[in-house]
């Protein structure tokens, strides 16, 4: 599903070039539940943004669903983001002036799905994350955990092949963290590929595979033993 080959990324800071990703090789199969760990500044977000086509990379190759993601037109990029990817941010990034239901329905607007159908589906996905009673609330009327569940419903509504989450529980307490994590696991069970950036071990432990980054290099890439045996 996701293949990175010798991907490099530089940021220009003033006159200098900051080498942030130093040749990543990653291969993630369809339906995997992967966590990416590493200390702050190791390049986790940068990597995830590249996977989400929110940012571009400087060297190497990125294949998403066997399509080379390189020098895409803005329209093509929008298409892939819309059809293949769902993104969950640490800071939720909900539109403050829209209700929970409208926020969830937004990706379908860009798929040109009719309003009635959009709202109906949005309601179903809110129900899935257990927030159907909050459909008419704006984000400011929701708790952090509720906001993240709305964001998850929004990421899921377009039925993406891959869900990318950048520290989705970073702003949540333990209780709500587990609630959100349960949803991710349920999504995974439905066969969707899930990649979660986190620095919390409790999260990483619940995934099948942990990729550790250090200074822009993959330090380790461990697949859990029991999962492997199940697969074989």
């Amino acid at each position: 599903m996701i293949t990175l080959k010798q991907v490099h990324k530089y940021y220009s800071v003033g006159k200098n070039k900051l080498h942030v990703l130093k040749g990543l090789d990653v291969d993630i199969q369809e339906g995997e539940l992967v966590s990416i760990m590493g200390s702050s500044g190791s390049g986790k977000s940068t990597m995830l943004n590249i996977l989400g086509i929110l940012d571009d990379y400087d060297e190497g190759e990125y294949h998403l669903n066997n399509t080379l993601i390189q020098n895409l037109s803005a329209k093509k990029a929008a298409y892939y983001r819309n059809r293949f990817l769902g993104f969950v941010f640490q800071s939720f990034n909900l539109l403050s002036f829209k209700t929970a239901q409208e926020n969830v329905a937004l990706p379908l607007y860009y798929q040109k799905v009719g309003r009635r159908k959009r709202n109906k589906l949005a309601m179903e996905y809110l129900e899935m994350v257990g927030l159907s009673d909050r459909a008419d609330h704006t984000p400011s009327e929701l708790s952090g955990g509720q906001k993240q569940r709305v964001a998850l419903a929004r990421a899921l509504i377009s039925q993406p092949k891959v869900i990318l989450a950048d520290e989705p529980t970073g702003a949540l307490d333990t209780q709500t963290t587990q609630e959100v994590m349960d949803i991710f696991k349920e999504v995974h069970r439905k066969g969707i590929t899930v990649v979660i950036v986190t620095h919390e071990n409790e999260i990483a432990e619940q995934t099948d595979r942990v990729i550790r980054l250090r200074d822009g290099i993959i330090e380790s890439d461990k697949v859990k033993q029991e999962e492997l045996t199940v697969k074989e």
Binding site: G52, L54, A74, K75, A78, Y79, R81, N82, R83, F87, N93, L94, L95, L106, P107, Y110, Q111, R154, S158
Partner: peptide, 16 residues
Amino acid sequence: TKEIGVRKALGATPWS
């Protein structure tokens, strides 16, 4: 700008 970023992340084309 931020709203535009969110919309783009959700698949909005530049023209939209």
